[in-house]
C-alpha cells in the first residue's frame, strides 16, 4: 500500500460536507442514496443554509437520513412527504424545504400527493429517487419497474399484460402549470454527480425567488434489490434505466 505522501504544499480539495454527520450510513454498499444524501448536504453547506433548511423523508430506504443530515428533518407517512413539505413551507415561507422520496413512495402510494403538490405549484424542491424497485421492503415491483425486470413480486419479469407499463411520472408532472423546473439526473458517474449538484443548487435558488415546484428525478441503483454487485448495477442502470428515463432537463424556466 502506498501511504507515504510528501507532496509539498498540499491543499485540501475535497472533503465530506460539514453538515453531513459522522454516523455511518446504513445503506447497502454502493447504493446511490448515499451519494444523493451527501450532495444535498454539500449544497446546503455551500449556500450556508443549514439552519434555514427543512427536509422531509418518508418511508423507504432513506427513512433514516435524519441521522446523516444535520438539519431539521421530519418523517412523513409513506407517500405523504410532499403534503407534509407543503405544510412546513406554508408556515415557514423563509425556510428552504425539500422532500426526498423513492419511487414506491412518490409514484405509487403518494401519486395523488405528488400530482396535487406540483399542480399547486408549492414552492418546494421534490427529490425523486427512482431505483425502479421497493428497496426497503425486499425488492418488490414498483410503478417504475421496467418491462421484463425481475423483482420479488415479478419473478418472471414485469409484463404489460399483468402489470401495465412503467410509469414515467416525471414527464407526467412536467405538464402541470405549477411545475417550474423539472430535470432528470443520475449519480453513477463523476460527471453525473457534478450535474445533479448544479440542479440542486439551482432549485434552492429558484425556491428563494418563490418560483414554484422544482422536481429532480435521480435515476439510482439498488444493488441489493436488483441482485447485482454495485458495479454491475451501474452498468445495468446505464443500459436499461437511462434509455427508458433519459437524463436531462424536462422543463426549464423561460427567461423573465
Amino acid at each position: 500500500m502506498i501511504n507515504k505522501c510528501e507532496i509539498e504544499d498540499l491543499e485540501l480539495v475535497y472533503e465530506k460536507p460539514k453538515t453531513l454527520t459522522d454516523t455511518p450510513m446504513h445503506y447497502c454498499p454502493g447504493c446511490g442514496h448515499g451519494v444523493i444524501n451527501k450532495l444535498i448536504m454539500e449544497v446546503i453547506d455551500e449556500l450556508k443554509i443549514q439552519d434555514k433548511t427543512v427536509g422531509v423523508a418518508p418511508v423507504g430506504c432513506a427513512v433514516f437520513e435524519y441521522r446523516y443530515m444535520d438539519i431539521d428533518m421530519i418523517e412523513a407517512p409513506h407517500g405523504r412527504a410532499s403534503a407534509v413539505a407543503t405544510g412546513v413551507k406554508r408556515v415557514n415561507p423563509d425556510k428552504y424545504v425539500f422532500s426526498y422520496q423513492g419511487d414506491g413512495d412518490l409514484a405509487a402510494i403518494g401519486t395523488s400527493e405528488t400530482i396535487h403538490t406540483v399542480n399547486r405549484g408549492e414552492n418546494i424542491l421534490m427529490l425523486f429517487i427512482n431505483n425502479a424497485i421497493y428497496g426497503m421492503t425486499g425488492g418488490q415491483m414498483a410503478p417504475t419497474t421496467l418491462i421484463g425486470q425481475k423483482t420479488s413480486t415479478s419473478p418472471f419479469g414485469r409484463s404489460v399484460k399483468n402489470n401495465g407499463f412503467p410509469l414515467n411520472i416525471t414527464e407526467l408532472i412536467s405538464k402541470l402549470d405549477g411545475a417550474f423546473y423539472v430535470t432528470r439526473h443520475s449519480v453513477h458517474k463523476p460527471n453525473s454527480v457534478r450535474k445533479l449538484k448544479k440542479a440542486i443548487q439551482k432549485s434552492f435558488e429558484y425556491q428563494k425567488e418563490n418560483k414554484g415546484t422544482c422536481f429532480i428525478e435521480v435515476i439510482s441503483n439498488c444493488p441489493a434489490g436488483w441482485g447485482m454487485t454495485p458495479l454491475k448495477s451501474n452498468e445495468w442502470l446505464e443500459e436499461n434505466l437511462i434509455p427508458k428515463y433519459p437524463l436531462g432537463d424536462i422543463k426549464v424556466p423561460t427567461k423573465n
Partner: peptide, 26 residues
Amino acid sequence: LVCPDSAITVYRQSKNSIKQNKKVTV
C-alpha cells in the same frame, strides 16, 4: 464524488507550487 459513504478526502498540490513548478516527492 461517487463514493456513497463519503469515505474519501482528496488533496492536491497547491496552485502556488504548480506555478513554481516545484518538485514533489511521493
